[in-house]
Design a protein around this nucleic acid. Structure first.
Length: 245
DNA sequence: GTCCTGGTTC
DNA sequence: GAACCTGGAC
């Protein structure tokens, strides 16, 4: 069903080149960034990381003993202070316990047991800090794949089901997983926006059901697919029209 | 000004 | 389905 997933990657790769993600200098910075970026755009994460670094909190040994009040001012750019401050301290402790060990798939369960770490955060850490082969699924992934492949698919399915769908269709390759996720982020930020996607400039336009719908090769520049109030997650999503007024 | 965004928990 | 938060888009 649909085009091979690897083609989607190749289309983006041809446009953007290798992304060399995750944007962090150390594995611990990956861990911190994975927490900070929960529900937050990366630009704000960068500001918070800079604040944390200037104050010396990017040392896992120090962060492991930070109090929420000490972290609060540095977390201002990313918000969610009440959740992320205690979480940073706890995940720093977990990192101290693991940083010199050989990464194990069982670490996923350990991370998920930390309050405030969900599947995306756990997988980001495993893939980018520890180079374990888990595909990171985020909002960009769901949105882009739902548009590229059209209606039927696990796009709204629970996290692990979509992750499995993706991993089944790709060679089990850490570098590919890393760069593919990075490409999806790039496509999501530049073109496949939630509102008003810019299909005419999207590297996936030639393989995307959403950009290709209505039989057009793709909309000419400046004429992206028409939409009503907001684009659904795919062309023909059978939403129960129910008591539409 | 108000709306909208994005992971996780309850 | 709402709460947690911010700052950019409208």
């Amino acid at each position: 069903m649909g085009i091979p997933l690897i083609w989607v990657y190749q289309q983006a790769y041809q446009a953007y080149g290798h992304r060399f993600w995750w944007p962090a200098r150390t594995p611990f910075e990956v861990v911190v960034g994975a927490v900070l970026t929960q529900n937050v755009l990366w630009e704000r994460v960068e500001r918070a990381i800079a604040l944390l670094e200037d104050a010396g909190w990017l040392e896992p040994g120090r962060l492991a003993h930070a109090t929420p009040d000490e972290l609060r001012p540095h977390l201002q750019p990313v918000g969610y202070y009440s959740r992320k401050a205690p979480l940073l301290r706890e995940i720093a402790r977990w990192y101290l316990d693991h940083r010199h060990r050989i990464p194990q798939p069982s670490w996923r369960g350990e991370l998920l047991n930390i309050h405030g770490v969900g599947p995306e955060t756990a997988d980001s850490i495993l893939l980018y800090a520890f180079h374990l082969p888990v595909f990171v699924v985020d909002a960009y992934t769901r949105r882009i794949l739902s548009r590229v492949y059209g209606v039927p698919g696990p796009w709204d399915a629970p996290y692990d089901r979509l992750r499995g769908w993706i991993e089944q269709r790709l060679p089990r390759d850490v570098a590919l997983y890393q760069d593919f996720h990075a490409q999806l982020v790039e496509v999501g930020k530049r073109s496949c926006k939630r509102r008003r996607p810019r299909c005419s400039q999207c590297p996936l336009r030639s393989v995307c059901a959403y950009a290709l719908r209505d039989g057009k090769a793709f909309a000419p520049a400046g004429e992206d697919p028409p939409r009503r109030s907001r684009p659904r997650e795919g062309p023909g999503k059978a939403v129960p029209r129910a008591i539409a007024r």
